[in-house]
Amino acid sequence: MELLDPAILLQLLISGLLAGALYALLACGLNLVFGVMRVINLAHAELMLVGAFSAYLLYRFFGLHPVFSLVIVVPAVFFFGYYLQRVLIERVVGQPLLSSLLATYGVSIILVNIGLLLFSADYKSVPAMQGSILFGEIAISKPRAVAGLISVALTLAIYFFLERAHLGKAVRAVAEQPQVAAICGIDVRRIRMLTFGMAAAMAAAAGVMLAMIYSFSPISGADFIQKSFAIIIIGGMGNFAGALYGGLLLGVVESYVAGFSSSQWAEAVAYLLLVAVLLIRPTGLKGTAYVK
């Protein structure tokens, strides 16, 4: 069958990895927040859309290329997240699961409906970059390649920040032992604000990348947040690197399932994987457990 052609297999792999890189960037932010404060941020995908719509506005009115608008959008959303944590999320940290779910859900519906009021439900896109690079039979879309590479670069940058930088180590300390961290003189509240700001910035960056590739509307978030859930379950909740692997894995699996079966099954894959992983190995494939 023509699908077993190595060129097609490679093409599917590449497009899967590029899509997966974007998933990973989004899911890592979600997992970071969960890891540090045990809050599932239901507004995460809406923060992504804030990024996407900002990129749209900057492109539309100032002709700014999305890659450059990252420089404006990412810091702006970082501060938005930073202060959102301060006024709202901080109050539900350490509360029962439902409180944080509902608080973030509240933020999510407020953002979605402000989006609807401002932009209506029309699909928007930012066609700043087009075309593709050809390697013989294989075509790689330019915007996807750029989005995928930037996503990986950002995710790795945050990863090394957490691993190596002094401040990053503080974030991990708060994630693992908040009390001990506090005793050691770490300003836990500030670290949480920093964490949420970073996660929001990652979501916004993912949004800017998304704007280059897909069309989106204020109600596009639902699909992405559900996929992100699947990714962090697959990779292990609270595990930053796990979300990176999970995102790439989901991208590739989706791509192959769509290639060999149908795109409808590809959309199902995330949920089937999610349910399967939970039933067989609730701690995720990476195996770092979050114990209640």
Binding site: Q11, S15, A19, S220, Q264
Partner: peptide, 21 residues
């Protein structure tokens, strides 16, 4: 001949398959 989900925005694999047909 293939059906896709109502929120689909990614047709990369579909286009690759159609190309091969």
């Amino acid at each position: 001949d293939e059906e896709y989900g109502k929120d689909s925005t990614d047709f990369t694999s579909t286009t690759i398959k159609i190309k091969s047909k």
